[in-house]
C-alpha cells in the first residue's frame, strides 16, 4: 500500500486534490481511497487529506501515520504543522514552491504550482487552483500514470486549462 498525506489550507483544494489523485490511481487499475480529515470547515485553516493506493481493496479508515509521500500545497503550513511527522524512511516530499530548502533528511521536490495556476488563469474567488496542477507533478513522480491523471481531471473538470496546468507541472518538476 502506498500512502500519501496532503497538507493545505481550507479553500486551496487539498480535498479535491486527494479525490483527483484517488480517481487517477483508480483509472490506473488500482484500488484507492481518499479520506479528508475535516476540522471545522473554514477557509484558510490548515487541513490534511489522505490518499491510499493499493492493488487490493483498502479497509483502513484511520489517518495515515507513516506516509510514503507528503504533499505540501501551501508551504506556510510548515510554520504551524510538522509536515514530516511520521514520514517513512525513504519517504518523499513534494512542495508547492521554488525551493525545498526547509526540508532536510529526505528526498524533496519543488514545483511552482501557484505560478502554473496563475499562468493558466486558474483562479477561483481570488485563490489559485492547485489541485489540478499537483496531479501533473504527482504523475511525474510516478504515483499515477499521465494518461490516468488527465482522465481524472477531465472527469471532474470541464475546463481544459486544468489539463494544461497539469501538463505544465509535469514538465517543470525536476526529478
Amino acid at each position: 500500500m502506498y500512502e500519501i498525506r496532503i497538507h493545505s489550507r481550507g479553500g486551496q483544494g487539498g480535498v479535491t486534490a486527494a479525490r483527483l489523485l484517488a480517481l487517477a490511481a483508480f483509472r490506473d487499475g488500482n484500488y484507492a481511497t481518499a479520506c479528508p480529515f475535516y476540522g471545522a470547515e473554514r477557509r484558510g485553516a490548515p487541513v490534511v487529506s489522505y490518499v491510499r493506493i493499493d492493488d487490493r481493496p483498502i479497509r483502513i479508515y484511520s489517518q495515515i501515520r507513516n506516509p510514503d509521500l507528503v504533499v505540501v500545497l501551501d508551504p506556510s503550513v510548515m510554520e504551524v504543522v510538522d509536515v514530516l511527522h511520521g514520514l517513512k524512511s525513504g519517504g518523499r516530499v513534494l512542495i508547492n514552491g521554488a525551493t525545498t530548502d526547509k526540508i532536510r533528511g529526505c528526498p524533496a521536490y519543488a514545483v511552482d504550482l501557484t505560478g502554473i495556476a496563475l499562468a493558466e488563469k486558474l483562479v477561483v474567488a481570488g485563490s489559485p487552483i492547485l489541485n489540478t496542477p499537483v496531479i501533473g507533478a504527482l504523475a511525474k513522480m510516478g504515483i499515477v500514470s499521465v494518461d490516468s491523471a488527465k482522465k481524472a481531471i477531465r472527469e471532474m473538470f470541464s475546463d481544459e486549462r486544468n489539463v494544461r496546468a497539469a501538463e505544465a507541472a509535469y514538465r517543470e518538476l525536476v526529478i
Binding site: 484517488a22 480517481l23 481511497t33 479520506c35 479528508p36 475535516y38 483498502i58 479508515y61
Partner: peptide, 12 residues
C-alpha cells in the same frame, strides 16, 4: 454511514 470517515471518503 459513518460521518466523514465514510460519507466523505472516496472509493471505487
Amino acid at each position: 454511514l459513518d460521518g466523514f470517515v465514510l460519507s466523505h471518503s472516496m472509493q471505487s
